[in-house]
C-alpha cells in the first residue's frame, strides 16, 4: 500500500465537459472541497463516491482512477 499511489483524471474529464469543481460537486452531492481534495490526490474517495464520479463522466472507474507504483 505504501508503494502505491492513486491518480485520477477528474480535472481532465471536467475540462472535457467544461464544468467547474462546484458544478461537479453539486451533481455528485458533495462539497467543492471534496472534489478539490480528490483531484489533488489529498483524499481517497470511497468506492461509492468513485463510482458516482465515474458514472457522471460516463466512463469506467478504472479509467477515472489509476493505481500507480511509487
Amino acid at each position: 500500500m505504501e508503494n502505491q499511489e492513486l491518480s485520477n483524471q477528474i480535472k481532465v474529464q471536467r475540462a472535457m465537459k467544461n464544468i467547474t469543481q462546484e458544478e461537479l460537486a453539486a451533481h455528485i452531492g458533495v462539497t467543492r472541497k471534496t472534489i478539490n481534495t480528490i483531484e489533488t490526490g489529498k483524499f481517497v474517495p470511497s468506492t461509492i463516491l468513485a463510482i458516482k464520479l465515474a458514472r457522471f463522466f460516463e466512463i469506467k472507474v478504472e479509467e477515472l482512477f489509476t493505481l500507480n507504483e511509487k
Binding site: G29, V30, T34, T37, F43, L49
Partner: peptide, 14 residues
C-alpha cells in the same frame, strides 16, 4: 437531506 449529505459527507467525517 441532500444538503446535509453534502456538508456532512465523507471528507468532513474523515
Amino acid at each position: 437531506k441532500k444538503m446535509r449529505g453534502a456538508l456532512e459527507g465523507e471528507l468532513h467525517q474523515y
